[in-house]
C-alpha cells in the first residue's frame, strides 16, 4: 500500500498496537508524511492557523509519557490517542523519546513489514531533481562502510522476497478478478493466511465502481460465479470444520447475490442494489478475517 495510514485497523482496540509497530519501523516516516497531508486538509477546513493547531508530544500525553515509554500506547485513553495520531510533530518526538529511552517494551516490538520507500534520487525525475542536482557529498561517496552494506543487504533481501512473493502469487491480470479465478483457491498455506487471502481476493469487488445497472449486473454475476468456484474448490489449506464453515457461509452469500441479481431483473433502483451488494461483500470480507483471527 502506498499510503501506510490506510493500513490503520478499523477496530479502535487494534490501532494502538499497529501504531507502535509502525513507529519502530522504516514505515514511520511515510506515516508521518501521510498524516501531514490529511492534517493540511483538516487545518484548512477548520480555518485554524496551522502554527497554533499542532501540539507537541508533551502537550498531548503530558505525564503519561513515562507510561507510554514503559508500556506502549495501549494505556493511553482514546482522545489522547486520536490527538497523537493527528500530529506528525508529536509522533516524531515520540520516536525520538523511544530511541533515547531504550525501553525494553518498545525494543520487543516487531516492526510492521514495509518495503523500502523510494529514495529521493529514485523519485528525482518527477519530484524536482532538476531543481536539486545531486552533486555528491564529500563523505557519502564512501558508503562502502559496514553499516551501509548491512542496510543495503537488508533492503535488497526485502525487495527480493517481495518479488518472489509476487512471482509466486497465483494470479494473472487477464484471468478475471476476485474469486472468479480458479488460481485463488490453489494457495497452500496455514488456514488463517488462506482465509485472509480469500478476503483480499473478495476485496477486489471495490476496485471498480459500476457506473450503470449493466455494469453492476456484470460485476454481480462475476462475483456469484466466484462463489460457485469457492463452493466447488477443495480448499486444501483448511481442515474439515473450517471448510464446512466456509461453504456454509458461501451459500448464504450466494443467496444474497442471487436476490440482488433478481432485483436488478425487476428494474429496482440499481444504486440501492449496489449499496446492498457493497454491504454483503464487506460483511463476507469481515467474516473471513474474523475467522482467520479466531484461528490464530
Amino acid at each position: 500500500m502506498n499510503v501506510i495510514l490506510f493500513d490503520l485497523p478499523p477496530e479502535p482496540e487494534r490501532q494502538a498496537e499497529w501504531l507502535e509497530r509502525v513507529l519502530v519501523s522504516p514505515a514511520a516516516g511515510q506515516l508521518l508524511s501521510d498524516i501531514a497531508a490529511l492534517r493540511s486538509i483538516a487545518d484548512e477546513e477548520s480555518s485554524v492557523a496551522p502554527e497554533a493547531s499542532e501540539p507537541g508530544l508533551a502537550e498531548i500525553i503530558g505525564e503519561q509519557q513515562e507510561v507510554v515509554l514503559r508500556e506502549g500506547l495501549r494505556p493511553v485513553d482514546r482522545a489522547t490517542f486520536r490527538r497523537l495520531l493527528q500530529s506528525p510533530v508529536a509522533l516524531s518526538e515520540l520516536m525520538l523519546e523511544i530511541e533515547l529511552s531504550d525501553s525494553p517494551y518498545w525494543r520487543s516490538l516487531t516492526p510492521v513489514l514495509a518495503g523500502p520507500m523510494p529514495t529521493a534520487a529514485e523519485r528525482a525525475p518527477e519530484a524536482g531533481a532538476s531543481e536539486v542536482p545531486k552533486t555528491g557529498l564529500p563523505d557519502s561517496d564512501s558508503r562502502a562502510n559496514g553499516t551501509m552494506r548491512r542496510w543495503f543487504v537488508a533492503a535488497a533481501a526485502l525487495a527480493a522476497a517481495t518479488l518472489l512473493a509476487i512471482a509466486n502469487w497465483p494470479d494473472t491480470p487477464d484471468s478475471g478478478w476476485g474469486w472468479d479465478r480458479q488460481e485463488v483457491f490453489a494457495l497452500r498455506s496455514d488456514a488463517p493466511t488462506y482465509l485472509r487471502h480469500l478476503a483480499s481476493a473478495a476485496d477486489e469487488w471495490f476496485q471498480r465502481t459500476p457506473a450503470t445497472d449493466q455494469e453492476l449486473r456484470s460485476r454481480l454475476v462475476a462475483f456469484r460465479r466466484g462463489c460457485d468456484k469457492l463452493l466447488a474448490a477443495p480448499h486444501p489449506s483448511l481442515n474439515a470444520t473450517d471448510r464446512d464453515w466456509l461453504r456454509e457461509r458461501c451459500q448464504v452469500w450466494s443467496e444474497k447475490f442471487d436476490d440482488q441479481l433478481a432485483r436488478l431483473d425487476r428494474s429496482d433502483d440499481w444504486s440501492v442494489v449496489l449499496r446492498e451488494a457493497d454491504e454483503t461483500v464487506l460483511k463476507l470480507i469481515q467474516a473471513l478475517r474474523d475467522r482467520a483471527d479466531d484461528l490464530v
Binding site: S25, A28, E99, P116, W151, A155
Partner: peptide
C-alpha cells in the same frame, strides 16, 4: 533512527 524517519537506507545515510 534515520531509516525510520526516511524510509530507506540511502536517504537515511544522506
Amino acid at each position: 533512527f534515520a531509516i525510520n524517519l526516511c524510509g530507506n537506507p540511502h536517504d537515511a545515510e544522506d
